[in-house]
Design a protein around this nucleic acid. Sequence first.
DNA 1: TAAAAATTAAGGTTTTTTCCGATTGTTCTT
DNA 2: AAGAACAATCGGAAAAAACCTTAATTTTTA
Lengths: 220, 220
Amino acid sequence: MNATASSAEPITVMLVDDHPVVRDGYRRLLDSTDDIRVIAEAGDGESACALYAKRAPRVVILDLSMPGIGGLETIRRLRAKDPAARILVFTMHDSQAMVQRTLLAGAAGHLSKSRCIQQMVAAVRAVAAGKRYVETVEPPVSEPAPDGDGEPAALSALSKREFQLFCLLAEGRSVQDIARQLSISIKTVGTHHAAIMRKLVLHNRTELVRLAISCGVIPV
Amino acid sequence: MNATASSAEPITVMLVDDHPVVRDGYRRLLDSTDDIRVIAEAGDGESACALYAKRAPRVVILDLSMPGIGGLETIRRLRAKDPAARILVFTMHDSQAMVQRTLLAGAAGHLSKSRCIQQMVAAVRAVAAGKRYVETVEPPVSEPAPDGDGEPAALSALSKREFQLFCLLAEGRSVQDIARQLSISIKTVGTHHAAIMRKLVLHNRTELVRLAISCGVIPV
DNA sequence: TAAAAATTAAGGTTTTTTCCGATTGTTCTT
DNA sequence: AAGAACAATCGGAAAAAACCTTAATTTTTA
């Protein structure tokens, strides 16, 4: 069963989560296997980047919601330093939009905290082996240019105009206001809005706002 | 040091959290002590209430953000069944407003997930011994409504029910969903919604979401 | 007990959101 | 250069959701 690599060198892991107790729980969990060893822990993105260079773990497990530069930016910086970095996102944000954005930012896997323990261990092993591990049923986007250099990742799927509308909608502006300000029809705003929701796999305005905030498009 | 109760019977604990991996982490952590034993786990409020009657744990550790009836309602139901129930809230929502509400709902203690492991164990022991354990710097327990001093606890203007609705609305749940879940009319949800908007001087759902995030009621 | 607040609900209005189809440009490819 | 693909624009129609006002009942509070 787990005759994967008990004799060979274990999979080294760095945990990145801003909650010490949560980190401790994961550490105990992973260290109870015979092929995974936690060799580093960080409580924020900056420390994670610094520590990654020192310890060079095989896999990075990180939560998205963190103080400071946040999870997404951490992924980008780690990948910028080391394009071979294997990052497994382990978070509560299991919306399609979030999954998409983490993968586009350069993560190798995404796992919801609502999953069971076996899946976590399996995900670590898969990512360590160079595979991708995503728990979603379908790939919503094939490859919309994982450029990554510009702005927020998944938002690159939006056209210029759509991104402009995205910002205004996230700010809480009403459809009427937006139409007036841009001197376009309410119907046009509606069309753009629908396209945004479809591309980002969102379901309501609330999700749009939270996505915009976590992307840094609008302040909290 | 921990010569508290190694010979006597251990402190029995029930874990309530909707994330299996998190529960597993806590279990390993608590079971590694010699005076605390996890005897039950639940993933939502309803199961927790049912399981509490069966296993009668000394301490209940629960997270606030859960599907279904949610953490606060769970506290109330547990206390309604057994006024002697000792509940330790262990969550990420460490805003003053949240701490206050959990204590008013009947919790015996409140601890942020950002605290260290030693504090968690200490909190369990304190609560089991019949004490209160709150990590805040000052005692907010004395008076139920210390509002008036502006923005930090603006949410204290809301009633219990209104705050519950506030959380659900901020999470992006639709009015229909909320009505179904709480077994009330859509119209009633609308009334609460209007009251919330009036009390908090908000103008649309977007502002509500941003306020909820900045208050720590929901994660980003 | 009387007043105030909370919780429930309903009717009606406005706004948002979706599902269509359609036109006009621009860009890219063959 | 012709065609394909996309971006941006608008409109109709209908469903869904949000929003506003009033009001009855219960609970809490003073």
